[in-house]
Design a protein around this nucleic acid. Structure first.
Lengths: 344, 344
DNA sequence: CACTTGCGGTCAAGAACTGTCCGCAAGGGG
DNA sequence: CCCCTTGCGGACAGTTCTTGACCGCAAGTG
């Protein structure tokens, strides 16, 4: 019944706009009996959304934090705010979430009602880019490229090579990589018949996008991904080599794929290569993986981890906000290196 | 059938992560026959989500931009990006969406899985506030207050008055208002037994939140809202008075409620009072309402509107990105004022 | 022209949904 | 302590919807 499915969505949205609802309230809003509301709540629960309920005078239903983010139901204002927020995040003001921002932006951009689009556009027009060091890349170009990667559509563009000469290119885009200052596109260049990375700020996209392409089988299992990660690591001012005392699979599952290169050592440990612009950020990120680790280089990062650990120790007993489980495992000693646990 | 509703949600999410899907693909993913997929697509359509379809070799289904934003299904990375983006937007880096950002933040905060919470927290920790002029208000406090307003929960806090003396307060929170530099809470003060506005940066919230309260009936229909808007207008460096040639209801429907005061004049026109920090932003916002208007004051804004209009004229023929419909209506002449149309 | 893809009608079996009725459990206030 | 409110869930019966299977049709693409 369409009625039923729609009601589930509405129930989810009601639970998001308000925190406490009585069964009777919900029943009224949804136009069904309280019994049916109870059944619907059960359905949501069995779908994995944690709906908490409490009895008594102050009782009611409330949506809690679960294993997965439920579908987010935003009103117009909120949608505009999200779009704007993502746009600024994508342009690099905040480190480490740029790629994800662009992906989310492409997602919301696809479905944003046009009446809201004009509002976003207007706000964009008056928003100045704060960080003048950042190379000038438009959020629009990034959104287009992200969508092209996602939908496997060829892109055509003019490209200005390092030497200065322009050329017309056509390529199959695979990944978008952000390296703190610049954006790169990892793509298969059709003229050159090989994998290439292009600096987005040197590209001038032609519209419309080209036809769809079938994902190319890559010479080494994951050329595009590997190139992207390699690039992400290499282009940063700091490059770190860290041993993580957990399986490569475990570590890879817990970090954003563009963030670093994971290479297995044995069943219980692996090497993580990451790049970053700021040591403090890198230290926290690595600690967040939640397994035991040891930093080998650079020395600055070793020192940073030491200092952070000390600061945390001084804040002794304070809630550290982490819910990651510390991975167990042996932690061999090595002079000059820092051993650190998870849960930071 | 729970199966059916869940499938609808999954279908919606599939359509969001990719742009073109063939019916057979979707059928495979969802574990049903293509015929059922067609039926499900029909259901989505009748729920208001515009699913476009095209026939032929390159055909398939695609989710388009519709009247309302569909439930947004974000993966972990994207959720973190959204949370971070909203946080920075809420703290005032972008004008005009701060309140909405806080509301959206409260919404996502309620359901954010804890494993993501720690990531957000870590990023927050390393993100420096760029705008040093902004008074120091934590996003956490704003989120808490927004949730308290939404859920109608009393708040208890220490408040430092202008003169400097502290006092313990308990209040029923109604609105959160952002004025470019500062955040204010409009609330009913239980000790004083009257409406008050508190500067958020002078509040020190106590946890946990107090009991829920029944919304107070207000002496004048919408005291809290009116106070909030009044505050929003008054606290800005620029205050504008504008006649809009449309009914007060129409105008009120098209602008964010905190943005300005709308007062009816007659059936076809009304007065809009708005405050702002930047003239260009104000000009765009007013133009975005999409009805004919005339700016009376301040003179700077009159000039700004004039200049913007000229710039747009020079960009003649270019797409202006607006899809708002120009409201018809008479536009009386008045010396020294600027007449401007909608659709800018 | 051949092929792919989406569209929608019809049918019958089966499954799910809903409202109604019931008693039970748990929290909060008087 | 009692009473009220609120959520929980079993049972039942009638209604409704869902699903897969089959069909022919329409519309892009090469």
């Amino acid at each position: 019944m369409l009625e039923t499915s729609a009601r589930l969505l509405r129930l989810l949205s009601l639970l998001q706009i308000h925190r406490d609802w009585s069964g009777a309230d919900l029943a009224g809003r949804l136009g069904v009996t309280p019994r049916t509301v109870r059944r619907d709540v059960d359905k949501l629960r069995s779908l994995g959304y944690p709906v908490h309920a409490s009895t008594g005078t102050a009782g009611g239903y409330r949506l809690g934090a679960g294993a997965a983010l439920p579908p987010l139901l935003l009103d117009d204002e909120e949608a505009v705010a999200v779009a704007i927020g993502l746009r600024s995040a994508a342009l690099g003001s905040v480190e480490g979430i740029a790629e994800a921002s662009v992906r989310a932006l492409a997602k919301i951009d696809q479905v944003l009602p046009s009446r809201l689009r004009s509002r976003v556009e207007a706000l964009r027009a008056v928003t100045v880019t704060v960080d003048s060091r950042a190379t000038k890349v438009s959020a629009d170009a990034l959104t287009l490229l992200a969508a092209a990667c996602r939908d496997r559509e060829r892109v055509r563009f003019e490209y200005t090579a390092r030497a200065g000469q322009d050329s017309a290119r056509e390529a199959e885009p695979y990944r978008l990589v952000h390296t703190g200052r610049r954006w790169y596109l990892v793509a298969y260049d059709l003229q050159r018949a090989d994998w290439r990375t292009f600096r987005v700020d040197r590209m001038r996209l032609k519209t419309p996008a080209g036809p769809r392409f079938a994902p190319r089988e890559e010479p080494d299992k994951d050329t595009a991904g590997w190139t992207a990660r390699r690039l992400a690591v290499d282009q940063h001012p700091y490059r770190a080599r860290i041993t993580m005392f957990a399986s490569a699979q475990t570590v890879a599952d817990r970090i954003p794929p563009e963030y670093g290169l994971v290479e297995p050592v044995d069943a219980d440990s692996c090497t993580l290569m990451v790049g970053g612009d700021r040591l403090d950020v890198m230290a926290l990120y690595v600690a967040l993986v939640g397994v035991e680790f040891r930093v080998h280089e650079p020395p600055e990062l070793v020192e940073q981890v030491r200092a952070t650990a000390a600061r945390m120790a001084r804040a002794a007993g304070a809630e550290t906000g982490g819910d990651v489980d510390g991975g167990g495992g042996r932690v061999p000693a090595e002079p000059g290196a820092v051993d650190a646990g998870g849960g930071a």
